[in-house]
């Protein structure tokens, strides 16, 4: 049920490296949600990672190389670049210009960064997506990723989309604004602190009584569900795109 796409510009889709490795279905759901609003989605096959892992770990040169690869392959057209992750979107929007501040290509990078838009912001603000919930009543809770909150600024959009799902009761976490402890390579460089943080986060999730924890970021989800799985906690973790897609398709 695609809307009329005649007078809408196509959009690029940047899937993220985690989608490639572990969350392909979530990213596909994101693509379907965009297409549902009548936009043609273009997926450049040479895309890979936004470069954040190296950027945050003390390897800016490697990060710059990988970042530049993305800039190149997404700059054939001036289409918006939709990213199903607040963290990757934040990296590409906020940090790319810093990474290239001394580069002659800064201008090109800035034009790229301006086109980056997080998925739920795109669906809510650009596409004005309207959803009818076909799912059974469910209690869900929401984890805000730090960079979705503080870099991509997309939390209100994510919640606005979820609020359209009439059978979903959204229960707030007590510490919604606190980091889950993933932090990319932080989780393996400081595993004890990371472990303490994720176990607090999971306790918070469990305390809501929700049967599913949602997030717009695969990194946080991988962390939270990984811990829940290890502790045999039966709460499900799901990316917002996949969740919405399932709800509106019954």
């Amino acid at each position: 049920m695609k809307k009329d796409s005649a007078n809408k510009t196509p959009v690029y889709f940047f899937g993220t490296c985690l989608a490639d490795m572990m969350y392909a279905e979530s990213a596909m759901a994101a693509i379907r949600l965009i297409e549902r609003e009548g936009y043609e989605v273009i997926f450049p096959m040479e895309q890979s990672c936004c470069g954040q892992p190296a950027y945050n770990s003390g390897f800016p040169d490697e990060a710059r190389e990988v970042a530049w690869k993305q800039v190149e392959i997404f700059s054939k057209h001036d289409y918006p670049i939709v990213v199903p992750s607040g963290s990757c979107a934040g990296m590409m929007k906020v940090h790319y210009p810093k990474l290239f501040k001394d580069s002659p290509d800064l201008f090109i990078v800035k034009r790229f960064s301006e086109r980056v838009v997080e998925l739920t912001t795109f669906l809510h603000q650009y596409a004005n997506a309207q959803y009818v919930d076909k799912g059974a009543p469910i209690k869900a809770t929401w984890h805000s990723s730090c960079h979705a909150m503080r870099e991509a600024n997309c939390i209100e959009d994510s919640k606005a989309l979820l609020s359209q799902l009439s059978n979903v009761e959204l229960i707030e976490l007590e510490r919604e604004r606190e980091c889950c402890g993933f932090g990319g390579t932080f989780s393996i460089k400081q595993p004890e602190i990371s472990g303490a943080m994720v176990s607090d986060k999971v306790a918070d999730v469990v305390a809501t009584g929700a049967s599913v924890v949602l997030s717009g970021d695969a990194g946080c989800l991988m962390n939270i569900t990984g811990h829940m799985d290890k502790e045999n906690i039966s709460v499900k973790g799901q990316h917002i795109a996949e969740f919405i897609w399932e709800r509106i398709n019954g």
């Binding site: 730090c146 909150m149 980091c179 402890g181 460089k189």
Partner: peptide, 8 residues
């Protein structure tokens, strides 16, 4: 190394 760079 003791930071998730959460920006808080």
């Amino acid at each position: 190394s003791a930071s998730t760079l959460c920006d808080a």
